[in-house]
């Protein structure tokens, strides 16, 4: 494995989808670095959304991977909620990195002034951290009908793929935790 050259790993990674790439990216440092490869994500993006794009079109997208992430989360338009308080039940269906069980609930309060408060209550600690009761705060952008939740502290390399339930609606989404610590993690659920 150590003698196996990067170019060939990239070649075999080109046959994988984004979930498997994310899984690989959190196995170790070498894979992490390889998964940042621009070409892998360009191809995925093109085949997922059927067009190519300009990377810097959106301010916070600095790579194809970032762009893929944004676009992917923006495609989830399954909720219909109004302002109010909601209990969101999150169930992890796949995950990686130093996160184990992120099942839990978070209370979601959408206020008229567009502010949002979301507290995630994690049922069990993550793999490398005993205490992971993360406090997430965020904003609800009515215009874009997008809810951005930032984890206020803590950075856990990894991701989880979850289902979230608000009222009777269930969506599946991906939480990527692979960005810089200062930026925190971000969960985007689009609300319609």
């Amino acid at each position: 494995m150590n003698q196996f050259p990067d170019e060939l790993l990239l070649k075999l990674m080109s046959f994988l989808g984004y979930r498997d790439l994310l899984t690989l990216s959190i196995t170790n440092k070498r894979f992490y670095n390889l998964v940042q490869d621009e070409q892998l994500w360009k191809r995925l993006y093109k085949n997922q959304f059927n067009h190519t794009f300009l990377v810097h079109k959106y301010s916070d997208a600095t790579s194809s991977k970032e762009m893929f992430k944004l676009h992917w989360t923006k495609d989830l338009t399954l909720f219909k909620v109004k302002y109010g308080n909601y209990q969101v039940k999150m169930t992890t269906i796949n995950y990686g990195g130093n996160i184990t069980n992120t099942n839990g609930t978070f209370t979601l309060e959408l206020h008229q002034d567009r502010s949002l408060l979301a507290n995630l209550l994690v049922e069990q600690g993550s793999e490398y951290n005993e205490s992971t009761d993360a406090t997430w705060t965020g904003t609800f952008d009515v215009e874009n009908r997008t809810m951005n939740i930032k984890e206020r502290f803590g950075h856990h390399p990894g991701y989880f793929i979850y289902t979230a339930q608000i009222n009777d609606k269930v969506i599946e989404g991906t939480y990527f935790w692979d960005i810089k610590p200062t930026a925190g993690g971000r969960l985007i659920i689009e609300l319609v």
Binding site: M1, I26, T27, N28, K29, R30, Y32, N33, G97, N98, Y128, N129, G154, H155, H156, P157, G158, W177, D178, K180, P181
Partner: peptide, 19 residues
């Protein structure tokens, strides 16, 4: 692949109190 966990490194993904 018989590889061990190897933290992605400083400045990228630093777990809080770990390895």
């Amino acid at each position: 692949f018989n590889i061990s966990y190897d933290p992605p490194g400083e400045g990228l993904n630093t777990p809080r109190n770990s390895v």
